[in-house]
Design a protein around this nucleic acid. Structure first.
Length: 416
DNA sequence: TCTGGGGTCCTAGGACCC
DNA sequence: TCTGGGGTCCTAGGACCC
């Protein structure tokens, strides 16, 4: 019998901050997104105050001040590096794992239940001791059941490990709202509740043909998963299927030239990432939006397929302007813009055709990459990058912690 | 006044083809 | 007067996830 385990870091971003500043232990801490935007991680103390995930900061300013909540700007290079260490540590204990997100990994267990439980405890202790990161671990007959088990594990303040055995499933699922199930969002929850399906046991016992007609093929998978049938397997992707770069602007933008600079800046960032993977992209999409809360809403996207996939910044910049001109409408206050590279594939020699233009692009791109890898990120960048930094990006990141693990300058120093 | 960023998968309608 | 059916590709957008 194969079991699915999910190892989920507790309040991951907050935990990362706490590793390097122990004074944050047992005090309320939040990590927030760009532009003092919204809360993307909360410590247990903050959760207990009833501040929800994704809450805009301005709405909770009062309580944050009153309770002395510690604020941090997101420090993704730190979190990414800590994540890598967590995943490496887990892989020392298990043969088969899937890195599911920055703070979660699925693992397979084949042992008997008591052995599994002990193994989970061992992993948990190792992560806490070696890295200082607390985790919760849930185990069940499918990925979806493991997700539910993990959710329950978080509330088990003692062990933080929960084994969802077949005998216990009916009891547990009856108390588990269907809206909390992995893959059931707002819309699906609303739809299901209209037909009296409110808890996960209801879902499990629903007529499969009815579900098929209501939710499509994914609904069928969902029901089978909560029935303990493992239909969602492990994925081991070597590279992403798309690369996005986008930002919300603090000040809305009305000027197409400024939007163009932003778009080209994102193209520059995304193509850098593309080349890091040695990938070429066959498709570029550009989108702009006034944001959901605007009085006059407008949002459009446009895309272009390339005859030959490539990885040249210049090439994508050129097309991005054309696409932007196609979707831009004057008189709107744009709050967000972004680009997406897709149809990604490993670069082949075909790309480096002898077209004059491509040869120039290639030489330029390679030179830029070489300089930046030797002298540091951003040593040379496009003119749009400086326009962007000067006129659009005004983020100070005052509250960001140091790059403790990824910058020599910001290493922790231990004084004797 | 002020609401993130990066992903995956699915669907629906139109164009086009045989 | 009567005007098919099915497949594929493209584009745009929606739902969901962390």
């Amino acid at each position: 019998m194969k079991w699915y385990g999910l190892i989920d870091c507790d309040n991951f971003y907050v935990s990362c901050e706490r590793v390097f500043d122990p004074s944050l232990e047992n005090v309320p801490v939040v990590v927030f997104s760009n532009n003092d935007g919204c809360i993307i991680a909360r410590s247990n103390e903050v959760k207990a105050l009833g501040i929800p995930m994704g809450a805009p900061l301005f709405k909770y300013k009062d309580i944050i001040d009153r309770k002395g909540i510690k604020l941090f700007s997101a420090n993704f290079s730190l979190y990414g590096d800590m994540s890598k260490r967590v995943m490496e540590t887990i892989s020392m204990f298990v043969k088969d794992m899937e890195v599911y997100s920055i703070d979660e990994a699925f693992v397979n267990f084949r042992e008997m239940s008591t052995e599994m439980y002990n193994m989970a405890l061992k992993i948990r202790v190792a992560l806490k001791k070696w890295l200082g990161i607390p985790v919760s671990i849930g185990i069940g007959r499918s990925k979806t059941l493991a997700k539910i088990a993990t959710h329950i594990a978080k509330t088990r303040t003692g062990s933080h490990v929960f084994l969802l055995l077949e005998d216990n499933e009916p009891l547990v699922l009856k108390d588990y709202p269907v809206g909390e199930v992995w893959g059931v969002g707002k819309q699906t929850k609303k739809l299901l509740s209209r037909f009296g399906i409110r808890n996960t046991l209801d879902l499990r016992e629903a007529n499969i043909r009815f579900i098929r007609s209501l939710l499509g093929i994914n609904g069928v998978k969902l029901v089978r998963e909560v029935n303990g049938e493992a239909v969602i397997g492990f994925e081991h992707r070597k590279f992403p299927k798309s690369i996005t770069r986008s930002r919300s602007f603090k000040q809305p933008i009305e000027d197409i030239n400024l939007l163009e600079a932003a778009i080209k800046r994102y193209v520059e960032m995304a193509t850098e990432e593309l080349r890091r993977y040695n990938l070429c992209a066959g498709r570029l999409a550009v989108y702009i939006s006034t944001g959901e809360y605007a009085e006059r809403k407008y949002s459009r996207s446009a895309e272009r397929k390339f005859e030959v996939a490539n990885a040249y910044t210049e090439e994508f910049m050129k097309i991005s302007s054309l696409l932007l001109k196609r979707i831009f409408k004057g008189g709107y206050r744009y709050k967000k813009a972004g680009i997406i590279l897709s149809d990604l594939s490993p670069c082949t020699n075909k790309v480096f055709s002898d077209l004059y233009e491509n040869r120039i692009n290639r030489i330029l791109t390679e030179a830029v990459d070489k300089i930046n890898s030797k002298w540091g990120k951003g040593t040379v960048s496009s003119v749009f990058s400086s326009i962007y930094k000067g006129r659009i990006e005004d983020e100070e990141r005052r509250r960001a912690s140091f790059h403790y693990t990824t910058s020599w300058k910001e290493l922790v120093v231990v004084k004797a």
